[in-house]
Simulated assay, not measured.
Amino acid sequence: MKLASILNVFVIGTLFAIAAPKPIAALTPEEVQEIAEEVTVLIPAEWVNYLGEREKANGSGSIIAREGNTYTVLTANHVVCGDQNPVCENSNDLKIVTHDGKSYEVDNRTIKKLPDVDLAVLEFTSNRNYKLATLGNYPLIDEQYVFASGWPAPNRYFPKREYFFSVGKVLPKDIMNLLKIFPIELGYDLVYTSLTYGGVSGGPVFDSKGQVIAVHGMNEKEEIQESGEEKTLFLPIGFSASIPIKMFFELAPQAGIEVNWQESKTPPDVQKANVEVGISFVQQFEELTSLESGSSTSIDWANYANRMWRRGMITEALRGYDRALEMNPNFYQAWYGKALTYTYWRKYDEALQAYDRALEMIPDYAENKQNIVALRQKLVDFLESRANSN
């Protein structure tokens, strides 16, 4: 898509020049984060499990509309409901916590599920003035920078619950299918490279103008234990997946959602965004080089590599995986990471070899084995199709 293209259209003998929306100036990552923090909410949840015990978790969401003192929050359906049925029958005990730390009770009767996809809205009431998100409803561009926003559940890297903001890129369409393992039937049509964790589900994904262009819902991770560690650690190797905001616009009327949201059909200036975000990447890269000193583990190096390839630093990512393998030669997750990295780099033969090495080492009970087998088969089918077409 050429953002500044001009379409000449003849209508009843008259020539009209119709210009595509002119790109709006991109913001710095810090400016996008400032907007994101104000409109992103924490959604704590409690429920009773099948043993009769109370459990706790959390998701995220964004404030998209206000009528009087009633605010509407957009989130993922699985954050607020325990199923994908047409009506939310197993809703949890929910609250909304805004950026200022204020907590609001949720009347579960306000929950509205969108048909067929993993999206829902819910309401809370407040007389405070909260910023509303602008929804960016326009065609996204390959390699466009995006930012995930939300509240991860506590883990090794987030010992306490705190706000999280992660930069990434939209995967190019020509390789997205080679790396897509998420349920398309639930609307997960946008795959991107932002690093995300459990608890960010339902959170907004922003463009470089601070407009919400998707709702985050899934990421690929594995729970593992480093030798000598008592706690379970998370290793997010694969990609993140979200539901494009266009699906919300298409399906909201069917769910009876009638609110006055702020819509924009104008994309940001992608070239300026590349410069601004590129500077931010270099700064973060400098911080991560501290791994060279200290007691870093194979998991630390694998997570470092994950961050690097998500930022397009392919050579550095491969170095990180190799360091992880030096510490743990049977670390199949590092080979899996290398396979994803090579696929992203379009070095398909190397990717296939890395998949094979991962499958040589992975135990049958590993939760990621099915994903690795499926992605390897996608790559094989793609290479065979390409060979036959030539």
Rank of each mutant, 00 (worst) to 15 (best):
Q225P: 15
V259G: 05
I245C: 07
L251R: 13
K221Y: 10
I237N: 01
E229N: 13
E250H: 05
I243D: 01
P244G: 08
I243M: 14
P244F: 04
G228L: 02
I243L: 11
F239W: 03
I245E: 01
V259M: 04
E230L: 12
F248D: 00
K246F: 04
S264H: 15
H216R: 05
S264T: 15
S264L: 09
E220Q: 12
Q225G: 07
Q262M: 13
N260L: 09
L251P: 02
S242M: 08
T232R: 15
F249V: 08
F234D: 13
Q225I: 14
I224L: 14
F249T: 09
T232M: 10
Q262V: 13
V259H: 04
E229T: 02
W261P: 04
E258H: 07
E226Q: 12
K221P: 01
I245A: 01
E220I: 14
F248N: 00
K231N: 05
Q225N: 15
S264G: 11
I257M: 01
I224P: 15
V215K: 00
V215D: 01
P236F: 05
I237K: 00
T232D: 06
A241N: 01
F249I: 07
K246M: 13
E230Q: 06
E230Y: 14
K246N: 14
F249C: 12
G217S: 09
L235G: 03
M247K: 07
I237C: 00
A255F: 02
A241V: 04
G217K: 03
M247E: 04
A255N: 02
I237A: 00
K221I: 06
S264Y: 10
F249W: 11
E250K: 12
Q254V: 01
G238A: 13
A252Q: 09
P253Y: 03
W261D: 11
G228N: 04
G238H: 00
N219G: 08
E226T: 05
S242Q: 07
E223S: 08
F234N: 14
A252C: 13
Q225F: 14
E220C: 15
I237S: 00
P244T: 05
K231M: 09
W261N: 09
K221D: 07
E222Q: 08
T232W: 10
K221G: 03
G228R: 06
F248Q: 01
M218P: 02
G256M: 14
E223W: 15
G238P: 00
K246E: 06
E223K: 05
G217L: 12
E230R: 05
V215R: 01
N260T: 11
S240V: 05
K246T: 06
S242H: 12
H216A: 02
E250M: 09
F249R: 12
L233E: 08
